[in-house]
Nucleic acid binder design. Sequence first.
DNA 1: TATGAATGAGGTTTCATTCAT
DNA 2: AATGAATGAAACCTCATTCAT
Lengths: 218, 218, 218, 218
Amino acid sequence: MTTDPTPRLRADARRNRDRIINTARTVFTERGTEVPMEEIAREAGVGVGTLYRRFPDRDSLIREVAVESFERLIADIREITEHQSDAWQTITELLDRATDLRTVARLTVLSPRAREILAADPTFDTAHNEFMRTLDGLIKRAQADGTMRSDVSTGDLGVIIAMLLQGVQVLPDPVRDMMPGRYIGLLLDGLRAGSTSELPGRAVRAEEVIFRHPEPEE
Amino acid sequence: MTTDPTPRLRADARRNRDRIINTARTVFTERGTEVPMEEIAREAGVGVGTLYRRFPDRDSLIREVAVESFERLIADIREITEHQSDAWQTITELLDRATDLRTVARLTVLSPRAREILAADPTFDTAHNEFMRTLDGLIKRAQADGTMRSDVSTGDLGVIIAMLLQGVQVLPDPVRDMMPGRYIGLLLDGLRAGSTSELPGRAVRAEEVIFRHPEPEE
Amino acid sequence: MTTDPTPRLRADARRNRDRIINTARTVFTERGTEVPMEEIAREAGVGVGTLYRRFPDRDSLIREVAVESFERLIADIREITEHQSDAWQTITELLDRATDLRTVARLTVLSPRAREILAADPTFDTAHNEFMRTLDGLIKRAQADGTMRSDVSTGDLGVIIAMLLQGVQVLPDPVRDMMPGRYIGLLLDGLRAGSTSELPGRAVRAEEVIFRHPEPEE
Amino acid sequence: MTTDPTPRLRADARRNRDRIINTARTVFTERGTEVPMEEIAREAGVGVGTLYRRFPDRDSLIREVAVESFERLIADIREITEHQSDAWQTITELLDRATDLRTVARLTVLSPRAREILAADPTFDTAHNEFMRTLDGLIKRAQADGTMRSDVSTGDLGVIIAMLLQGVQVLPDPVRDMMPGRYIGLLLDGLRAGSTSELPGRAVRAEEVIFRHPEPEE
DNA sequence: TATGAATGAGGTTTCATTCAT
DNA sequence: AATGAATGAAACCTCATTCAT
């Protein structure tokens, strides 16, 4: 499923690679993509040299973290779907477990730089498209069920998720951790079917928000 | 109203100062507070030296832009209030004219650096407190009118505004400008009185979100 | 003996560090502490980055050079003392071999900036106190021997040494190297026991001249 | 006597010029020749523009201060000579009133930059030569009187004066003001006729120390 | 292979000097 | 003529990336 750029690694090399990716994911999510490479290396417990051996520059690190985060997120959704067949509930649960969602938001919708990198790399399309397809399926089902208002699109949901999660992220520490649920609650109330107001503007297509290799219309 | 840091400037100096502040406001809002000083100077059409003569370092530039943006925003609110007595409508209109609101969001809730600067500077309290008081008044009135749900606070609204506007900000260019209204619509539906769901967590106090010089209880 | 700030360095790093310190010592002694860092790096044959990796700012470079110079000077004194038991002769020889003495003078008595740096750093006290104790011992012995007038103190000698060596330093190149001995000769004549004039003012305490962490009275 | 570069000035212009020169003299003497021009202007109570109108660059300011300081010093000597015919006493008194002497020392022997400027400017020779001639006369007389040892030259005295005064200058504030007399005392003891030691090296010619337009041998 | 040292380009800031008011 | 604003070159320092051990 992945582009699998690292066919076989010695056990210790593998361990280092994992540490770096994990550290980078956390750091990118919490502090953005511009954190010094030296610092990422230090937090991962390796030298910069090792980091650069694995990822020749910052862009390639961002790319790998993004690919992997998409995959994790897709796995999250799968897991939820296993025990939860209601689409609205699935969306709610997904938003509640925001961890990987937040990373993806930061590395796609919320970082112009990351967006550019990913947009330039067609090998990334697979993971991305699968995610979009999945989200799209959920929304359509929730709308068919009559639980979600029908005038919002997958792209809209992408925007909203990104906005909310980013917002939550920068809150001062003490408020931060307890808050996501609250604002997701408000948002869901807005998304719920039966809302009275008519939304201005038009629905956003997913490709407009994330990046621009729209899958050839099947 | 102003802290008036520059009692009297020669006409040309005034012009340059204004250009710098305007450029910085745009640039900070669009691209964040870390844009190179040289670039701000270039876009403002002045030499770096001029920029530094007026604002001895980046922090002081951020500070001035923030103060001024708060003042502009307060003026916006006043203007709306003049022709609009309904609190809910006032909030809606305010959110629709998001320009200065977006700047303020970026420079308070959304930038840890800016937040730190402002928190360290008591001279900033005047503008800040006036804004908070105004927002607070609006919310209380809307809740008293029965148009806004009563389980949200001024701090909550601050968080939401910031989250939304920040999110909107990073959308890809073509989508960006037409979008705010749409998501504000969704949000307002969530905020509207009569919503069914019970919000988790607790209301956030304004000082928790922005910064920490709560006005001495009068 | 050393504060040993660099437990173990790779051979090449060690070589670079030494080059930098040596270059800085020369340059500080000849041209003062404000010589551009780029230039020090260039003369040491390394990039600026290397200089800054080892010494995060100018102050820390000054500090290291100072510590090391004190240590060299103490070693000089030890060496002289090994073959020379007469205190007056020791002082004379010490003044004749002015190299490290001049560096120390420049970095303590003669540079307000360096003095401030060193005064702020208690880890520096060891080297400093040892030097002062040594000098003090010499003077007391010379006075006990009846070779040095008894109305001068260690602090006085510090002032005089600094003044003379600084003066010598700025002489035009061709005159410079042959001169110290001459003026030291004049000075020593003034210091010699049996001088007729009575000195105005009072003896200076060493701490007044150098800096202000007087060793806790034992 | 002066090179008189400013034939006639309006009263206010004259006043500004004087303020600038006085401020610059103090500042150069206390803190060296590299103090920011803006700061000199501020302390003089004029704008930078005014400073630059009068002195087109730093070098020319240094030059003017130097010329004037020489003239003041010569006047000092004259004044002393009026009531004091003993050459040794004259030298002693001169050293005791160190003010202008210190400025001259800083701007000639002690500042490589200033020395270069003055050396490059033949119009400066007049003041300089007169001073040297005067000092030379005093020394010769003191030696003829048998009060000063005969193996020192005018150049030597220049070196010593400069060294001592510079040294005094950089002493920590509390010690500084009360000290010059003390070290001058020591020095004079060394200079006094009857000293036992034989000086190493050779006498320095005045031109070697100050700068290099040796007056055509008359 | 892993490490951390070295490099230098680029961003920040200061200040000598010029120029508009 | 006086002022203080504007300029840009040069110094400081950081960090992405390359390279020696």
